[in-house]
């Protein structure tokens, strides 16, 4: 008897800002759509624990996609992308997510992302509160400078190992070795996209003057950050949530910047609470 996972993968082709993307996504569950974004330079296997967690798949239609240039989602097939430097912008990132949700016909999805996925969750709450039931920015802040570094793809170093070990201590020492090394493994696969992702994360994403324009009473914003995250320390997230009308901040003990990937068993406890708050506020 084959030991098949209930998780299935599919491709969908969408057009975003003139780019044709064939997007790969994993899916499991039924009910309220919950669409999940991986971290910069990684791919959707970071959500492997959640995708197979029956407590959540019972009530949530969980979708975890690979952003173009990550995992099994290629760069655009209709452009000579190898002739230009990849730099992700907030506008294109938001447009992509909305187009993907449209293509998958997701009605009032909850968007959840970590790190640069958390920062784009804030962008979605600002720009498209009409399209999302709620957002869960994980390890996010209004501004996160300092990580757009040349080291991520320096030709004199092993970029795969620099990226993978460069994010190693974004994780908590309490997280299981297997999960930390799997996260390391994912990072060893995404070095070419990592720096371009971080252009969004550390440069183009800057909501310091915009937080007052996010209304979490219209589109709930539940932010969560682990205490071992040095890049978006808990105080940065808390400070961001405090400036959003109706924003919620949850601090996560004994976990770092990749909570769903480095320790799903700890993360799921906090996610349960975030979803409870969203249900309470949205009915």
């Amino acid at each position: 008897m084959a030991r098949h996972s209930p998780v299935t993968g599919r491709y969908v082709t969408i057009e975003v800002d003139g780019n044709e993307y064939k997007v790969f996504y994993l899916h499991n569950g039924n009910g309220q759509p919950l669409i999940c974004q991986h971290t910069a330079g990684a791919h959707n296997h970071q959500w492997r624990g959640l995708l197979e967690d029956e407590e959540f798949t019972r009530d949530y239609n969980i979708i975890a996609y690979d952003l173009p240039r990550h995992g099994k989602s290629d760069p655009p097939h209709n452009r000579e992308w190898w002739k230009e430097e990849y730099r992700l912008t907030a506008e294109h990132y938001v447009n992509f997510i909305v187009k993907l949700c449209d293509a998958l016909e997701l009605k009032d999805p909850i968007f959840m992302g970590s790190s640069f996925g958390g920062n784009v969750a804030l962008q979605l709450a600002l720009r498209r509160p009409d399209r999302f039931k709620a957002v869960i920015p994980v390890e996010a802040a209004d501004y996160a400078p300092g990580f757009f570094l040349d080291w991520w793809r320096h030709p004199h170093a092993n970029a795969a190992q620099v990226c993978a070990s460069g994010v190693w201590d974004l994780m908590a020492p309490q997280s299981p070795d297997m999960d930390r090394w799997l996260t390391w493994h994912y990072y060893s696969q995404g070095s070419e996209a990592f720096k371009g992702d971080l252009y969004f994360y550390s440069v183009d994403h800057d909501l310091r003057e915009e937080l007052q324009n996010i209304d979490a009473r219209r589109c709930p914003v539940v932010m969560m950050t682990g205490i071992y995250d040095y890049l978006t320390p808990p105080e940065a997230t808390e400070n961001t949530a405090r400036q959003i009308r109706g924003g919620v901040y949850i601090e996560m003990e004994d976990i770092g910047h990749f909570p769903m990937s480095e320790n799903h068993e700890v993360f799921r406890v906090y996610l349960r609470e975030a979803l409870r708050i969203i249900r309470e506020r949205t009915g």
Partner: peptide, 16 residues
């Protein structure tokens, strides 16, 4: 054996 946050690696300690 179990370092406090921000003392758990060279990146964390150099940032914070």
């Amino acid at each position: 054996p179990m370092p406090k946050p921000m003392f758990h690696g060279i990146w964390a300690a150099s940032f914070c």
